[in-house]
Simulated assay, not measured.
Amino acid sequence: MHPAFSVIFLTTLIGVGQGLFLALYSGQFYSMMKLLPGQDSQNFYAMGSLLALGFLAAGLIASIFHLGRPMRGWRSISQWRTSWLSREIIILPSTLFFVALYGTIHYFGWTQPVFTLGEMQPVDLSLIIGTLATLSTFALFICTAMIYASIKFVQEWHSPLTVINYILLGTASGFTLAAAFSASIGNELVDFYATWAIILTFTALIFRSVALIRNSQLKQKSSPQTAIGVRHTMIVQQAQGAMCGSFNTREFFHGKSLGLLKTVKIIFLMMVFPIPIVLLLATTAGFEYLSIMAFVIQYLGLIAERWYFFTEAKHPQNLYYQSVG
């Protein structure tokens, strides 16, 4: 497939924003359970939510450049009963709303207990809104991934691994950013977030590797015979029927060499997984500002990973339009 950079930035940016919010809420939940020290609402939760909103909003802005007619983009929500894209377009603003509300509550200090669980655990408004934002965040992960996983004829995407990897890669990058954010403001949660970022990144490495192995061993269900509806055993295309490329050859085939694809795969495997893990391990050893470098390298690697995700997919129509790419 042809990778559209607007979609690459959309999926990676909102993934970071979603992961960062989950990291913030996890930190608050651990603090509520007395497993971590409490943090200042304005400097940590409110500013962290603002940072998460920035990534989510940047992803939303990036998506506009993928629309042929942006002024008609609102119509895409009309197919929400059957389209994962429509569902994503509905869930993304709701996630923005809940994250913004979560940050607002912390900024103004509206954290007085609303009720008490059992006899010991007070629950405030930020925890309630945070739970709704968490549900919306996971729903957004699923909707974004299912846009691709639901396409049966693109076999590289049509797998539960697509959903799992979107969730893991987004969450891992968000926790890495949380470690970098904690280091930049000098709070005590750097090791907590760095440790979880290592765990999530390593888990993502396992599942992304499984997906790469699976895709390399796929046997395509389509063939030149099924592409043109002729069952003859020996079919060789001599000409496309046109002198140059078309919409099909531009939009459904990347036109890159196998050598470039292999190079990009090696680059993203290094930049998304082992290099950030090493830097995060150094972060837990006291070199806290290396977490900032870990996030930058990991995010650049995620851009390469998402580019490879699209180019790796083989659209069956390319069996027909194979002379001009």
Rank of each mutant, 00 (worst) to 15 (best):
S126T: 12
T201H: 03
A194M: 02
D124Q: 10
T116M: 10
T201R: 09
G118S: 08
C244K: 12
V210S: 02
Q121T: 07
L189K: 09
S136D: 12
S184A: 12
I198L: 09
S216G: 11
V114W: 13
I129C: 12
N248Y: 15
A183W: 04
P113Y: 06
Y148W: 14
T144L: 07
R250D: 13
I228G: 09
W196P: 08
Q155G: 04
E251W: 14
T111D: 01
A239K: 12
V123E: 07
Q237L: 13
E188A: 14
K219Y: 02
I206A: 09
A211S: 15
G245W: 02
V236W: 09
Q112F: 05
A172I: 06
L161C: 12
G174K: 05
L127S: 14
F153T: 11
G109Q: 05
A194Y: 01
L117Q: 00
T116R: 06
G241K: 02
H254S: 10
W157I: 02
V114P: 13
S209R: 10
T111V: 11
T137L: 02
A133I: 04
Q121C: 00
Q217M: 12
I185C: 00
F153M: 07
F253R: 09
H158R: 06
F192R: 02
G118F: 11
T144N: 07
V210A: 09
V236M: 11
I199W: 02
T162Y: 04
C143W: 08
V210I: 14
W110S: 07
T137R: 02
M146E: 15
S209M: 08
G241N: 03
M234K: 15
V230F: 11
F253I: 01
G130I: 04
A204E: 03
T131D: 01
W110L: 14
S216Q: 04
F141W: 14
P224G: 05
L161T: 05
M234I: 12
R250F: 15
F141V: 00
W157C: 07
A180Q: 08
L212C: 03
L132I: 15
G255W: 08
Q220A: 08
H158Q: 01
M234R: 13
I142C: 04
T134Y: 04
T176L: 06
A227Y: 01
V154L: 15
V154Y: 14
A242Y: 13
L177F: 13
S182G: 11
L161N: 02
F115P: 13
L127T: 14
V190L: 10
I167Q: 02
